[in-house]
């Protein structure tokens, strides 16, 4: 319940939505509402509902794949185009993002990617897929920057890496049960050309306020031929010096160990190299 809410706007165009958002410092964008409507945030005085603006398209084939900002998580689970993109990783991530079908029917892609915080499985996968947010009137911005600096405009779509020869992705989680929130999560997107890693994005989720790229792991992989030894070294050496704070019942050292395990698992799944 938002006790301080005074205005609800249902704009007919993006331009109108932008004006409504800009004209009121207490205005927030409303997508599915799964977070904002339960936030009890008394600074929210106006909501600008963008769900009627046709921003729910899903285009994952071709050179410029994108997810519409207001597509529902359940659409990602169900849509054949999403199931066929990178082996269905977005469908799986959307499913794991919320085990409740009722909430997946409501929650939007942009809301989940921007607001899920530590528990954002979809957000971590999107970061590994090089997500760039298309913001109305402001152009594109990198998801990683948005996680750090925040965002004030209206996201209209999330652009992702196209599929291509030698490009693969995998993710691995450690959870108490399959549908519970992960204790550790890693995603590995890897591009291999002529037997060498030419590009990669390795993302750690479930730790800290938002998913982050593990650039030290990426540097170890760069230019190398993926094999069991490389994956072991990347997961071990790439996480040296990474400090993770304790959580109730889980020491930072143990969480770091879990991250190593999931980085290894994600790389193994992405490269198809087993035995790590």
């Amino acid at each position: 319940m938002l006790f301080a809410l005074e205005h609800y706007h249902r704009p007919r165009t993006l331009a109108e939505a932008g004006e409504q958002l800009a004209s009121d410092s207490g205005a927030r964008v409303l997508g599915g509402g799964t977070r904002i409507l339960t936030s009890r945030d008394d600074s929210v005085r106006s909501l600008v509902d963008v769900t009627g603006l046709g921003l729910d398209g899903l285009e994952l084939g071709g050179e410029e794949p994108f997810l519409g900002a207001t597509a529902r998580l359940q659409d990602l689970v169900d849509a054949p185009a999403v199931q066929g993109y990178y082996g269905g990783i977005l469908s799986e991530a959307a499913y794991l993002s919320n085990p409740s079908r009722l909430k997946r029917n409501v929650a939007t892609v942009a809301g989940e990617i921007l607001e899920a915080g530590r528990l954002g499985v979809l957000s971590a996968v999107a970061l590994a897929l090089g997500a760039r947010l298309v913001v109305h009137d402001e152009g594109e911005c990198d998801l990683e920057e948005v996680h750090v600096n925040g965002l004030s405009g209206i996201v209209t779509a999330i652009r992702l890496e196209p599929e291509g020869e030698g490009r693969t992705i995998g993710f691995d989680t450690v959870s108490v049960v399959e549908t519970s929130n992960p204790m550790a999560l890693s995603v590995a997107w890897v591009e291999v050309d002529s037997g060498k890693v030419v590009s990669s994005r390795i993302v750690m989720g479930a730790i800290g306020p938002h998913p982050v790229r593990l650039r030290a792991v990426e540097e170890i992989l760069q230019g190398e031929s993926p094999d069991v030894a490389l994956i072991e070294r990347a997961a071990r050496d790439g996480l040296e010096g990474v400090q993770i704070g304790d959580r109730p019942g889980l020491s930072g050292d143990y969480l770091c160990h879990l991250v190593r395990v999931t980085v290894r698992g994600a790389l193994s799944k992405a490269t198809g190299i087993v035995g790590t």
């Binding site: 609800y8 249902r10 409303l30 599915g32 509402g33 799964t34 409507l37 339960t38 909501l47 509902d49 769900t51 079908r101 009722l102 909430k103 029917n105 409501v106």
Partner: peptide, 11 residues
């Protein structure tokens, strides 16, 4: 099917 508690009446 949606949770009606998360659906604003005005929407």
């Amino acid at each position: 099917a949606v949770p009606s508690c998360l659906t604003l009446a005005h929407s």
